[in-house]
Amino acid sequence: MTDGIILQTRGLTKEFRGFVAVDGVDLAVRRHSIHALIGPNGAGKTTCFNLLTKFLKPTAGRITYNGRDITGASPASISRRGLVRSFQISAVFPHMTVLENVLVALQRRSGVSFQFWRSLACLDDLHGRARDLVEAVGLSEYVGAMAGDLPYGRRRALEIATTLALDPEMMLLDEPMAGLGQEDIGRISALIRRVAANRTVLMVEHNMKVVADLSDRITVLQRGAVLTEGTYEEVSADPQVIQAYMGSGHA
């Protein structure tokens, strides 16, 4: 196992009733890098993502994380090993406050989450850390607001704060910029760069400017298979990639 690789797949394949959505993907994500997964619509990015986070079971192939096989692991268990995902549709707990959203993630390590006979007061010492996380993503003024009442961009920031509460070794972000306005994109980009400083990030993203800006390495998927891989400069100059995007109506 190569030391610098944190997440690796070999021949990862997913079939849906004969339709091959992901076809023999070999992917290697280097530790402490920001790796982007791009490709035209229907290329299998989201399926690939769901396979990596165990929300789908692969038909064939293996996934290793930190040198250990996680192909058969449950989605909750890989999260506990430090591989935490986000969702395309911003995933917050809408009828809980911003602070509670972060607290529910923080309390996972507390070991009291099954204790229904204890008062929440036994977790009060997590509040300080929760407030720091809320502040780190620029949501201090919303700390007591219901998460569902936040504007969309702020919900993204909250989701990242909640993910950071788990102190993940690796974050998988599913289209972090989907549905965001220009101003929010700038803010969330900066946030991702900041939190990626000592972590690994793998993201699926459509916004090429963001991809160019953030990624150290890019894998291009087309029709479920890897088309090419490289830096933004290498990938964007590749005639195959231009062909793939032109062919599906992008420029």
């Binding site: 929300f55 268990s77 999260s79 986000s86 995933a91 707990f93 809408p94 529910v104 989450s113």
Partner: peptide, 18 residues
């Protein structure tokens, strides 16, 4: 609190490791 989180958004609760 975890039970409420599960009711609110089950996939997210899973992704937090519950």
């Amino acid at each position: 609190r975890v039970l409420k989180a599960i009711r609110e958004n089950e996939p997210r609760a899973i992704s937090l490791g519950y």
